[in-house]
């Protein structure tokens, strides 16, 4: 099968997934106590006639499947709902907060991929050595530590006690830096949340790299590379790593939901003004339309992420296309 055909098949598969996510949220909206009209009416005393007119206007008097169809079309055209608490369309709120979350995520990815692969390779070089065991202990701890608690402890120690890093937020509002000073200020604020979010991912990537490197190192072509007299560095990082990375790429892209969960918690601890903090604020303001809109948005992003993972996998490992 050609790469294009393979991709088309995967895109086709993801359509029912998207519809499924939208249907779940639609079902939740209707199962939730109260009616969507309640958000608009609030505590105001209004006549039944007004409520009926509002219901007709919002299409709530139509059969459920018509409402679902309309809802799907709305979402597909980029309308993720309306936050009555903030009096703003959900999509505008999401786009407003997205850059901060993206900055956190991308930094996290760079850090965890670089460190995870490096630690995995040096760990695989001599399995069961002292270094390998130390790295294993580290990864077990990193898997078990609750992200938000790790964040809290980092704030308490290096930010609050030692005063090396700012405690919360993304910029120093009092100073109002501009230009390069602003970039440095953001980086200073970014360090701890990115480290917190990266830690479990470093552990995941290093475990995967380690086990897949150990497997690859045992194969014939590595012996050949060594026999040719290549340096150990070149054998490990060029010849072995290339093939060892294939499973790593897939798992890392499939791990997006876990990463989003981590971002919600990390942003909450560090008051990082991204989607995670928006989630936390929406929970406390009981802003359900915002929560639901964000759920749909995040579901779509995750499904898209899986598509990208499929594409990368097919590019890296041509065998997969013929299965």
């Amino acid at each position: 099968m050609s790469l294009g055909g393979y991709l088309l098949k995967r895109v086709f598969y993801s359509i029912p997934l998207m519809l499924g996510a939208i249907t779940i949220i639609f079902a939740l909206i209707h199962a939730a106590p109260g009616e969507p009209t309640d958000y608009i009416i609030g505590d105001a005393s209004v006549s039944q006639e007004f409520i009926d007119r509002l219901r007709a206007e919002m299409g709530l008097d139509r059969p459920l499947w018509v409402q679902l169809g309309k809802y799907v079309l709305e979402v597909m055209s980029g309308n993720f709902g309306f936050s009555y608490v903030r009096n703003t369309p959900v999509i505008a709120l999401i786009l407003d907060r997205l850059p901060a979350t993206l900055l956190l995520m991308v930094t996290q990815y760079v850090v965890s991929v670089a460190l995870g692969i490096y630690l995995g390779v040096i760990s695989a070089r001599r399995p069961n050595s002292l270094l390998d065991r130390g790295i294993t202990v580290f990864s077990l701890a990193a898997f078990a530590i609750p992200l938000f608690w790790l964040g809290q402890m980092l704030i308490l120690t290096v930010a609050y006690q030692l005063d090396w890093f700012p405690i919360q937020g993304m910029v120093n509002i009092r100073q109002g830096y501009t230009g390069f000073a602003h970039v440095l200020d953001v980086a200073h604020h970014l360090f701890l949340p990115a480290l917190t979010l990266a830690l479990p991912n470093i552990a995941l990537i290093l475990r995967l790299t380690r086990s897949s490197m150990i497997e690859v190192i045992g194969q014939e072509y590595i012996k050949v590379a060594r026999a040719k007299g290549l340096s150990e560095r070149s054998v490990l990082f060029k010849h072995a790593l290339r093939n060892a990375l294939i499973p790593v790429v897939t798992v890392v892209s499939l791990n997006l939901p876990t990463l989003i969960a981590g971002a919600v918690l990390t942003e909450t601890v560090f008051a990082w003004p991204g989607l995670g903090r928006l989630t936390f604020d929406a929970i406390h303001a009981r802003d359900y339309p915002l929560l639901m809109g964000m759920f749909i948005f995040i579901s779509l992003v995750v499904i898209l992420g899986n598509l990208i993972a499929d594409l990368l996998y097919a590019l890296l490992d041509p065998r997969i296309r013929y299965q």
């Binding site: 969960a261 919600v264 759920f295």
Partner: peptide
């Protein structure tokens, strides 16, 4: 489908509602 859905976020929405 269940595996692809962001489960943590779904849990947040359900518990919140």
């Amino acid at each position: 489908m269940f595996q692809v859905l962001p489960q943590f976020f779904l849990a947040i929405v359900i518990v919140a509602i």
